[in-house]
């Protein structure tokens, strides 16, 4: 319990730090912020916008007002010549898409990388291991957007097997939903699979040299059990660390992949906020992504304590 409290405090600190920093940066943009947000508006409307966002106050005060609204679920508005739309509405509809994209990619990555890592470590040095390593190295060096474009073009357009863009929610049927997610998820996962497999492989090879593996073998238990029950867990700690460090890249990847496959996710909000110079909306979107990032890392931290009992006592 105390452990969770400490994590919570850390989450809040990180999020405050990130959002304050981005708020500050956005305020460095030259010119009157209201002109930036709504260049089309009349003088009165501009004044209203200024009031609404407390842009007449000092930056730290503005920031604090923004925080206050944010925790109440008010994420500010997107201003267009004809209307102002609450950002919260966009987030509500777009957030699940990005979450799905990220979770599916992590899932696919682990489902492929763990068996591949275990196998290549077990068969280290064999022809098959070297073959797999070469392929993975190739996959690792292609950026995810290139894979995305290739898949969208060949599988989506040329072969027409799967849609090359668009999104169908889970509610419209599992297969209908899956069809729209397969290519984006694969695009995001490939480089990650390659990286994670190599990390796990090298840790696994080191673990397999350990005394306790020889000891486990000498008990007469099956080779499979030695690999999966004895060697995998202690070898997966670096993998976990790398996964945590990689969440940022993964989120960055989703922004691009969402654009390629025309998925209505957080990336879309982000890009349109940038294009429309909606820095209040941008600020809120960045904050939500930061929270997502931190939460995933907290989950990874929790997994650590599950995987390694020695950590439980330390932290």
């Amino acid at each position: 319990m105390a452990f969770l409290m400490r994590r919570l405090v850390r989450v809040i600190t990180v999020v405050l730090f990130v959002t304050f920093f981005s708020y500050f940066l956005l305020n460095l943009l030259p010119g009157d912020p209201v002109d930036t947000i709504a260049p089309f508006a009349t003088k009165e409307i501009k004044e209203a916008i200024r009031k609404e966002n407390h842009l007449d106050r000092a930056v730290p005060v503005q920031y604090w007002f923004w925080v206050e609204k944010f925790v109440q679920g008010d994420l500010g508005y997107n201003y267009t010549p004809s209307s102002k739309n609450p950002v919260a509405d966009d987030v509500k509809s777009h957030f699940p898409v990005s979450v799905q994209l990220v979770l599916y990619s992590i899932l696919l990555t682990m489902l492929c990388a763990i068996p591949l890592g275990v196998f290549t470590a077990y068969a280290a040095g064999s022809r098959l291991d070297r073959g797999i390593n070469t392929v993975l190295f190739g996959a690792f060096s292609i950026p995810d957007f290139a894979i995305g474009l290739l898949l969208a073009y060949f599988v989506g357009v040329k072969l027409g097997w799967l849609p090359n863009g668009g999104y169908k929610p889970f509610g419209s049927g599992l297969w209908t939903h899956a069809r729209t997610m397969i290519l984006p998820v694969i695009s995001l996962a490939i480089a990650q699979i390659a990286g994670f497999t190599r990390v796990l492989r090298s840790d696994m090879i080191a673990t397999l040299q350990e005394d306790f593996i020889t000891m486990a073998k000498s008990k007469g238990i099956s080779g499979k059990r030695v690999l999966w029950r004895h060697a995998l867990r202690p070898s997966s700690l670096t993998l976990l660390t790398v996964a945590g460090l990689n969440v940022g890249a993964l989120i960055g990847g989703t922004v691009v992949i969402e654009a390629i496959f025309n998925l209505p996710g957080m990336g879309l909000i982000l890009t349109s906020a940038i294009r429309g110079r909606q820095f209040i909306a941008l600020q809120s979107t960045v904050a939500i992504i930061a929270i997502g990032y931190v939460l995933i890392n907290v989950m990874i931290d929790l997994l650590y304590t599950v995987l390694d009992p020695r950590v439980r006592n330390v932290s």
């Binding site: 350990e210 005394d211 306790f212 020889t214 000891m215 004895h230 202690p234 390694d308 020695r310």
Partner: peptide, 8 residues
């Protein structure tokens, strides 16, 4: 110290 599995 090294011959028992540390996480089991």
């Amino acid at each position: 110290m090294t011959a028992l599995n540390p996480v089991m």
